[in-house]
Nucleic acid binder design. Structure first.
Lengths: 325, 325
DNA sequence: TAGGGTATTGTAAACGTTTACGTAAAGTGC
DNA sequence: GCACTTTACGTAAACGTTTACAATACCCTA
């Protein structure tokens, strides 16, 4: 059915080893005449390498497995674009394995699938595995790297924005705009969330602000809407939100109860995806460079020397009011 | 390094064939005693099957390849969730191959990768391949199915909403709300776009409306913003948009020039993703059931008998004004 | 006890490709 | 012309797993 190198060898009058060398481009091991003949016949037959056979023999493949989290935020496209582009430049293919949203079983299955496939590297995108799966990864001998997440453990590769810097910059910016009653909303209790709390509190302290206010959530729009209720009795003038979706949820729920953004409540959103342009008003954001994070994580997992942290920036839109001091 | 069935056989005192039978669960071909011993040793050794070896021998794998388009709209998550869940129920794994956004080279590479991997089926998600790639798929012997797109060719499997029905229902709804000057915005010239034009025009005709107005775009937010300029000199009271992103773009650009939605301009958006809840006002939508489309496409590619079309519904939010007749 | 049927296990080959090593031919330099 | 080096090619084995077929062991019944 599917042509093999045996078929090409038979038609070319050469051995399967020669066919293999030509198709693997082992320069200097075949003549131009032989090469031309083999390539012509391969094309005529519609030959395609059997990936399984190659991987079995080489015990390695030129494929990076990306394990993708179905996070309620929508930054994945930028990350994937960056990964795909850089991997292609380095001669690597990319397969994506889907891990659902905080579904330990799906995550475990995705990790095992990647390990079974002798991939050249594994990128875990905004995913925090439990200890058993982390051990599995470490013991596999396959390089892996966290993307848009880091664990504060040395020896574990990662590429991300600096979560402490994200929130401390947001605090700096809001203080600069005259705000002193600043909350942090929608983060969770995992590493990313705790790192952002650290930066938030350090930012408040640096400005001599002694009152902090933190509300947990799950990064989703619905979570944002619910969180607005919790802020109603509080005297905060500004909220830093854990994601664009949290911000959109707070924004819309606020407007529904007559709280105007930015006049009555200012918002600074973490991520800075296209959602920030869609809302009314547009959301001022601490914008992450997801494309570069993705791209750089490929270099990281391939063993190149790169910086862990990708810089963020403040993008001013319409959700922050300057207060009189 | 990685344990093989040879290692297990040596420790168990049985042949590799017996180990293989146990690990492949060939019931009735091994004793319970032998099974228990083999499974215990496999676990102690941390054994994992080598997927490449299995695929090489069986010439087939229990994996569905999903080729994913980076469409500017964001319905992928629902589709992927549906695919992943249904595939799991049917004992199939899923790998995702990324094809960029209308990038013929990336698409071709993704298709070739899927074919090289002896997958059990290929799902093409909102992707329209050129004739050469379509021929490649047909000649491969591997079943494939279009997801959220259909080509009007018999024998080619697909699962989608009915694009003619989408626009004709949108027209029906707007006419019911008193609108007669109705435009269609943001669709492209590919199959999906032309099918939606057909439904739009049939809907107008059915209501005796003789003036149609169609503006092409690329489903993106930026495209939507630009399109609003083209509508300024026209006397339309309502626009059906090709995607939620187009709608958001038109909505925001309109508000920036003093056109109020829905008072001055009504919008009905195709897709109905979470974006419709985020905008202000919320967008009335023809909502597609992406989860069910994904789920059903798995049944389709696995050879089960399913309906091609998944029903849509109108979700009323805040973007359509009822006009006086 | 002998015979028949079923369960259990082992041997050998297959799957498609890569590559180490050996051999032959061609090319280069003295 | 000879010796050495490089190019080109072939043979054989490897990779890890599956499975057809043969052999053996076990169980049940007459």
């Amino acid at each position: 059915m599917k042509p093999t190198i045996k078929d090409i060898a038979a038609r070319s009058g050469v051995s399967i080893a020669t066919v293999s060398r030509v198709l693997s481009q082992k320069t200097g091991t075949y003549s131009e005449k032989t090469q031309a003949k083999i390539l012509r016949i391969a094309k005529e037959l519609g030959y395609r390498k059997n990936t399984a056979a190659v991987e079995l023999v080489k015990k390695r493949s030129a494929v990076i497995a990306v394990i993708l989290n179905a996070t309620p935020t929508n930054f994945s496209t930028g990350v994937i674009d960056g990964i795909q582009k850089r991997a292609s430049e380095l001669g690597q293919g990319v397969i994506i394995l889907y891990a659902g949203n905080r579904d330990d079983q799906m995550l475990h299955k995705a990790i095992v699938t990647a390990l079974e496939r002798t991939v050249s590297g594994i990128l875990l995108t905004a995913i925090e595995p439990d200890d058993a799966d982390l051990t599995l990864l470490k013991d596999s001998g396959i390089p892996f790297c966290f993307v848009s997440l880091y664990l504060n453990q040395p020896k574990i590769l990662s590429v991300s924005s600096n979560n402490e810097s994200i929130t401390s910059q947001a605090v700096d910016y809001l203080v600069e705009q005259g705000h002193t009653a600043i909350a942090l909303a929608g983060i969770d209790g995992y590493h990313t969330g705790t790192q952002r709390i650290t930066g938030y509190e350090a930012g408040l302290k640096a400005h001599g602000i002694t009152t902090s206010c933190i509300k947990y959530g799950d990064y989703s729009y619905e979570s944002g809407r619910k969180l607005l209720q919790e802020f109603l009795p509080l005297k905060v003038t500004a909220i830093i939100t854990a994601s664009d979706m949290i911000a959109a949820g707070i924004l819309n729920a606020a407007q529904e109860v007559g709280i105007r953004v930015p006049e009555d409540l200012s918002l600074v959103s973490i991520d800075g995806t296209i959602i920030c342009n869609i809302t009314t008003p547009g959301l001022t954001s601490v914008t992450q460079d997801f494309y570069r994070i993705g791209s750089r994580s490929v270099d990281q997992v391939m063993g190149h020397d790169v910086e862990t942290f990708v810089p963020v920036k403040i993008d001013k839109r319409g959700s922050v009011k300057q207060l009189e001091k």
